[in-house]
């Protein structure tokens, strides 16, 4: 996590404002689908989707100090709800996605209610166990979820008359969802609620003494993070037209964690960049060698041992000349 600031300066929460380079990056992102192949556009669409999920984990991990090892539960809940409502009840994909957000928020509320009273290790083991529970439910309840085969055959919907089957339209849906999520999460972090969350991370006893309802603040953070992870999951389902228990695996929870650690926890944009690096690297490495897992593991180890602030920390250090 971020080190404690000196005593008498107010806590500066990183990742709260729009930086100049972000505007430039947004400009490039708008141009990208017109210069790239549909394949290249699709790859970056995936980056946007995973970035939303990674940022939602960052809200818990980087700002709240709540390290969830089961974040795939909310991603998967959103994905399954979207596909099930669309395919089984014949809802439009957008209604399915909207309901998916509610479902993942609800799942996060239930899991969070049981988890937030646990400290440290029990917390993360519980989050892991609940995610695993959803995973086994998705595997076993074949009549509902199709078991390990998952459910496919969902056609991409249209938005304002533009079909998402077109890779550019899909790309812009991803981009807009990403930008809106980033702005919304920034608002959350800048709000009194966000400050209370950071305060709880830094000194829970003091915050309790000041009268903050610690468990309720954490639970609210959990639900918000769950909804955004669900948004990522729902979009992923729409993007693929398909959902399987892969969306709920321990490995996927680990992937989200790695994106946050790689990009730098507590910076929002960091984990988004982490998602980008991860997916592009996976694309590149998988084409050349089978040892993708080895490389993931080694990057994880290297980040934890030597680059604790991740990419974001590295940039900050360069920018401030090593003071941060």
């Amino acid at each position: 996590m971020t080190p404690l600031p000196p005593k008498d300066t107010p806590t500066r929460i990183p990742g709260r404002r729009t930086a100049g380079w972000e505007v430039v990056a947004l400009g490039l992102a708008v141009v990208w689908p017109f210069v790239a192949s549909p394949y290249g556009a699709g790859l970056v669409t995936e980056v946007f989707i995973f970035a939303i999920a990674a940022m939602s984990l960052d809200l818990l991990m980087g700002y709240g100090g709540l390290v969830s090892f089961g974040h795939a539960a909310f991603f998967g809940a959103g994905a399954y709800a979207t596909v099930l409502l669309t395919m089984k009840l014949g809802w439009s994909a957008w209604a399915g996605l909207g309901a998916g957000l509610a479902v993942s928020g609800l799942v996060a509320g239930v899991i969070g209610y049981l988890c937030v009273r646990m400290a440290g290790v029990a917390f993360f083991m519980l989050t892991l166990a609940f995610a695993q529970l959803l995973f086994s439910a998705a595997m076993k309840w074949r009549w509902l979820t199709g078991g390990s085969d998952g459910i496919g055959g969902m056609a991409r919907p249209s938005l304002l008359g533009l079909p998402l089957a077109d890779s550019r339209t899909m790309y812009f849906v991803g981009l807009v969802a990403f930008v809106l999520s980033l702005m919304a999460l920034r608002r959350v972090i800048n709000s009194p609620f966000g400050h209370a969350l950071v305060g709880l991370r830094e000194n829970e006893a003091r915050m309790r003494a000041l009268g903050y309802p610690a468990s309720r603040v954490k639970l609210a953070a959990f639900v918000i993070a769950g909804v955004f992870a669900g948004l990522g999951g729902g979009l992923y389902a729409i993007y693929n037209g398909f959902v399987s228990p892969d969306a709920l695996t321990f490995g996927l929870s680990g992937t989200f964690l790695l994106m946050v650690v790689l990009g730098g926890a507590g910076s929002l944009m960091g984990p988004a960049i982490g998602a980008g690096i991860f997916l592009l690297m996976k694309q590149f490495v998988s084409a050349h060698t089978d040892h993708w897992l080895l490389i993931v593991g080694l990057i994880f180890i290297a980040c934890v041992m030597f680059f604790r602030g991740g990419v974001h920390g590295l940039i900050e250090r360069l920018r401030t000349g090593g003071r941060a």
Binding site: M1, V67, L293, G297
Partner: peptide, 22 residues
């Protein structure tokens, strides 16, 4: 922080899986 050590063991679990599979 303890979390760093937990994350480290997590990284190792990927390395071991790759080792076993190769």
């Amino acid at each position: 922080e303890k979390l760093d050590q937990v994350l480290l063991t997590f990284g190792f679990s990927f390395v071991f899986t790759d080792l076993v599979e190769s």
